[in-house]
Amino acid sequence: MENRINDEFIIGGRSFHSRFLLGTGKFGNKQVMREAIIASQTEIVTVALRRIDTQKNPENIVSFIPDGVVLMVNTSGAHNAKEAIRIAKIAREAGYGDWVKIEVINDAKYLLPDNEETLKATEALANDGFIVLPYFHPDLYFARSLVAAGAAAIMPLGSLIGSNQGLKMEMIITVIVEEITEVPIIVDAGIGSATDAARAMEIGADAVLANTAVAIAENPVMMARSLALAVSAGRMGFLAKGGRTSMMRAQASSPLDGLLNG
């Protein structure tokens, strides 16, 4: 049995039951997005900030997000720390809280984060009272710098955004998980399947953030549930310390004595 009392997931002083975070992009329609959020039991969702297209009649995404779910505004579209800081401040001043996912990207092909600018934004916003979750290219020294800068959690990429390529960065994320114990580690980007989500948790990540895998699934609501269950399953496997012994020979699991032909 999962013991939630002894397995709290805390970010920014707030305790959560779910270790699965869901992005809200790319959903075919907002009602399906809402149902996916509910099915996943996620307690934190990401959203983006954009100019309103005055030629269209946009829907109010906030009205589709269930009550009690934390809105975390991402800084997507920012090319440098200054732009990321501006987005975070606009969202806070507009009343959308102080949770921010730092995403600073200069590379259009691979959408890889600019770690240097991410660090600057993290430091400035943490000093300004934001709960800052930076998305970064996994590197141990850099992870330490983010913690020192005041990150509330750190979010190494599993693989390229929207690629569903899984945990290509597994080795370095494993190192980061071993070494960084001050803040939660949330694997973000590239999680394409339940297998990926469970694996991230089994190597000791504290949580997983997914979006594309759910939003583009034929059945997004079922996929949301699938990833959420995989996150729980992986977490339990990690806590149980199962499957740690890897051997190049078989080990009988039935008794070797008392054999009928003995």
């Binding site: 992009g25 983006a48 900030l49 954009r50 946009p58 606009i90 507009a94 929207g162 980007a189």
Partner: peptide, 8 residues
């Protein structure tokens, strides 16, 4: 004029 939209 801005608004929140879906994003990952």
């Amino acid at each position: 004029l801005m608004s929140l939209v879906g994003g990952g």
